[in-house]
Design a protein around this nucleic acid. Structure first.
Lengths: 242, 242
DNA sequence: TATCACCTATAGCACCGCTATATGAACTGC
DNA sequence: GCAGTTCATATAGCGGTGCTATAGGTGATA
């Protein structure tokens, strides 16, 4: 796979860099690799991008535009909070699809060099949260909510990237996502819960579970399972030691 | 500032690397800089650490121990959720105090090289969340809660590091922190019936019992009974609705 | 045709991570 | 006291890296 064809050298450099970055698996990518794959000599790179960093910035910018385009695509569902969920999921998916690019974009953010992308991403999410705010579904200022949600979104995505692909559990994403959206939305019922702090023994917990189970007709266990389960529970909750 | 003194070369290398890393401002640190500051020649570095990566890993490990020590210091306040808050704040503060080290630890996590540190950090938080679970204050499994909270914690810390120090707004941290803890805690609105928007009290009680059982080595059930019991308990506590 | 701005290539510099090899120091067994 | 062994450090250098001083080729304009 090479880019010797018809494209101008600048484009060939961009594509070569993007491809090598995507397939490097974390290993550093050298300018010689890039220029060779692009079929171009070293000074051409520096003429067009000034810098290796400049070339990478251009790749990141292109990737970010792709990301933004993906975010904007399924906007108008009429349920702003649902749109936020899709935005979150799209963010995570982008990170998992292009982990190297994502790590360059969000993993190495340093105060002096990076925050433009972060600001853009925040603006994108704030824009969507504004609709939720207009609909009276927001608990806090859209800007603060956007920053908070985006931060959690980035953290989750990085954690998932760090995991071996085989054992990635997307539940981490959905759980954190819903937690953040819930905390930010106006729909929380805020009643005071029972203060169970202090009591912490197996017995107390077993008794509580026993009582709760009897009242709730949970269907997670079959009736015969439930019978045995309750018997064991009884045995535990009548034990004298903790 | 040099380390020519009395310390063994291995220690001098560690300190020199840590100092250069801390003050590099994101610029790469070369082995020649390190060995020169340590007053040592190149092969010594490779004799002790095998690799530049190995040296950096050692620096990171030392930094992580410092971090863990900070986390463990103010554990036992009796209010587990309050301890989680302090843990979160301590994490953020560590990141802001040693941004370079933090970025090496959490910014560049790649599946093939890093997740040991993440696992340790998760275990640390899970350990604390277990206490909350035993006290009946948790809505979800401690492990899942720990992963979720840590992910958000990392994301927030990275975002704060990315901001110029002058305009860092710690409200982003406290807001996200409280949102995550709130979403994970049992105290949200379970006053009335079993179907209020949060999890039912059955789930909370089952999670509490699960955590308490794991910690207490109760001998009321045989090991095979206990295994099945825990399996059912897991089924109950992971049911999404009652 | 001559000019000029733009783009690209040859060759090479200073630096990088790393190592083959050798030297010194400290301990062990006789 | 001394050979043998092991560990720790140093000298010198290899191949690779980001980058550039300089020069050559190309097309549009005059």
């Amino acid at each position: 796979m090479s880019f010797d064809g018809q494209l101008p050298p600048k484009m060939r450099l961009l594509r070569a860099a993007a491809e090598l970055l995507a397939n490097s698996g974390g290993a550093p990518v050298s300018t010689r690799q890039i220029t060779q794959l692009a079929g171009v000599s070293a000074p051409t790179l520096y003429h067009h991008f000034g810098d290796k960093e400049g070339l990478f910035d251009a790749v990141v910018a292109a990737g970010f535009e792709e990301y933004v385009a993906g975010e904007r695509d399924f906007a108008p569902s009429g349920h702003p909070l649902e749109d936020i969920r899709r935005m979150w999921d799209n963010h995570v998916q982008f990170g998992l699809n292009q982990p190297e690019l994502y790590l360059v974009m969000f993993g190495n953010i340093r105060p002096e060099s990076r925050p433009a992308i972060v600001a853009d991403a925040e603006a994108l999410m704030e824009e969507m949260l504004n609709k939720a705010a207009v609909a009276g579904q927001l608990n806090v200022q859209p800007r603060e909510a956007a920053r908070s949600i985006l931060a959690a979104n980035v953290g989750v995505t990085l954690m998932l990237i760090a995991e071996p692909a085989a054992e990635r559990n997307l539940e981490l994403s959905t759980m954190t996502r819903d937690a953040m959206i819930f905390a930010v939305s106006a729909e929380q019922a805020n009643g005071a819960g029972p203060d169970t702090s202090g009591k912490s023994s197996v017995v107390v917990a077993a008794i509580a579970l026993n009582a709760a189970l009897q009242a709730s007709h949970s269907d997670q266990l079959s009736s015969s399972e439930l019978k045995l389960f309750l018997e064991w529970l009884h045995r535990i909750s009548t034990s004298s030691t903790s």
